[in-house]
């Protein structure tokens, strides 16, 4: 599958898909999208990159081990749930703040942090499986 065209376009495609996945993740609360779908898109992006340019390149690009990314996601999700305890409400009660940055109102919340956690878990989990399988292909 390592044709020149594929190898040439794959990095651009991957970058676009990762960007798109983040877009999907962030818009998820109000429009179709969310952490799970975003995670799947990013995972397929890395799978494509792996098929085109080899697993080593993906691992270098990811920097962290995919499983560590996944674990960090789970940590984010749990922390997002725990944050409401010091605030005096029950576990996983959503907390919202609306800071103004450069004149724009941003909606930041623990559900968003939680969704980012979901995103990372899915990216890490699926990528680690896909990468491990791709790696084996060559030996």
């Amino acid at each position: 599958m390592r044709t020149i065209i594929f190898r040439f376009t794959a990095p651009y495609l991957t970058a676009l898909m990762v960007l798109f996945s983040i877009f999907v993740l962030l818009r998820g609360h109000n429009d179709p999208g969310g952490g799970f779908i975003g995670g799947l898109i990013a995972a397929s992006a890395f799978a494509i990159y792996g098929i085109a340019c080899g697993v080593a390149a993906v691992r270098r690009a990811l920097y962290f081990h995919p499983m560590a990314i996944s674990a960090a996601g789970l940590l984010f999700a749990v922390v997002a749930g725990l944050l409401s305890i010091p605030a005096g409400t029950g576990f996983m009660t959503g907390l919202w703040i609306f800071p103004h940055v450069f004149g724009t109102e941003l909606a930041l919340s623990t559900p968003m942090l939680f969704d980012i956690g979901v995103y990372l878990v899915v990216v890490g989990g699926i990528s680690s499986i896909a990468l491990a399988l791709e790696e084996r292909e060559s030996d």
Binding site: P32, G33, M67, G73, D115, V118, V122, G125
Partner: peptide, 26 residues
């Protein structure tokens, strides 16, 4: 604070379920 009901259910109303699910995914 979310228009996307599916997403709100996943991350908020039934967030504990999701937490269990992502633990399973991992």
């Amino acid at each position: 604070h979310g228009h996307n009901i599916v997403n709100v259910i996943i991350v908020d109303f039934r967030g504990v379920d999701t937490m269990g699910e992502i633990a399973v995914v991992m």
